[in-house]
Amino acid sequence: MTKTWFDSVVKDVAPIMKEIKTHPFITELSDGTLDPKNFHFYMHQDSYYLYSYGKVLASIATRLKEPDYSLNFMSFSTGTIEVEKALHKDFIADFPDLDPPEKSPTCALYTGFLTEVFEYDSIEVSLAAVLPCFWIYKEVGDYLLKTTTRSNHPYQKWIDTYGGEDFATSVERAIEITEVYAQNSTEEIRKQMTKVFLKTAQLEWMFWDSAYRREQWPI
């Protein structure tokens, strides 16, 4: 299938993707020098996020008309839960002396945004809203696999999870399903899809940045 909409939106989001790859959280994650306290904060925020993200994916599955697509998204949802359990249990257990942080403002904003889009927008727009998390994590995982040269890397398991072939298969399928809906929608809907994709990509950058700063509520 020609990925007309997706190829176009990837070009639009290229500047954001560049900012993500050059953010200190990612560059320090690559060379293994990222402060463990920052990673601990990130893992907890990601746990909060994935809980909500998995619920949105499952909800999307109930609105997809095609049985295969619905099964795919239910699988994505359960897969998200499994990743959350495995990775977060391993890495969070490495920091028994650190208290779990509360849900950060950025994490609350991101999960609230996804829920709001699902509640009030079309299924096409909902698909576009959840797609950046798939695609950006795959891009970052692949990038880290290429740039990381350190042996005994403290975060190698995390890198392998998102740079692996199993995840690549899920990402490609999510892209294909979203593209089908984009091609069978109106130009106005596709514009809305692009807009929400860019917003979610911005939230992905904000998520990394908030973890690097160990973001706190201001008052």
Rank of each mutant, 00 (worst) to 15 (best):
Y42Q: 07
L198R: 14
F73Y: 10
V140D: 01
R63Y: 15
A128H: 04
F197A: 02
K89H: 15
L64F: 10
W135P: 02
D94P: 03
S185Y: 02
A201S: 09
R63E: 14
E176H: 06
T27Q: 15
P15K: 14
A211I: 08
I60A: 08
Y53H: 05
T78G: 03
T27R: 12
Q202L: 07
E102A: 15
H88Y: 12
E139L: 04
M17W: 07
I136K: 00
S75M: 00
D209S: 13
L87F: 11
S77D: 03
M206I: 01
V9M: 13
G54S: 15
M43F: 08
I136A: 04
K85A: 09
S104F: 10
K55G: 02
E215R: 02
G141H: 00
L98P: 08
T149P: 07
F6T: 00
D142R: 08
A86F: 15
L71W: 06
R190G: 01
T111I: 11
E66V: 06
E204F: 05
Q156G: 06
N38L: 09
R150L: 12
Y137M: 09
V125S: 05
F39K: 15
T4P: 07
Y49C: 07
I123E: 13
V125R: 08
I60R: 04
Q183W: 06
R173K: 07
Y162Q: 08
S52P: 05
V125G: 01
M193C: 06
F25Y: 12
S185H: 05
S122T: 13
V180P: 00
I20D: 07
D7I: 07
D97T: 13
E187T: 05
W135F: 05
E187C: 00
M74Q: 02
T78S: 13
A108G: 06
F91G: 06
N152C: 10
K18S: 14
D166I: 00
K199D: 03
K55W: 01
F207G: 12
A182Q: 05
P36T: 04
M193I: 09
H44I: 14
F118R: 09
Y110T: 07
D166H: 01
F95M: 12
P132G: 13
I177W: 02
F25C: 06
K37Q: 09
A86V: 14
G32E: 15
F197D: 02
D12E: 14
Q202F: 04
Y48L: 09
T161L: 03
D12Q: 12
Q216H: 13
A93P: 13
L98V: 09
T115M: 15
P132S: 14
C107D: 10
L127N: 01
F73H: 04
E116R: 13
T149D: 04
E139F: 01
F73L: 07
S77N: 04
I123F: 09
Q156T: 12
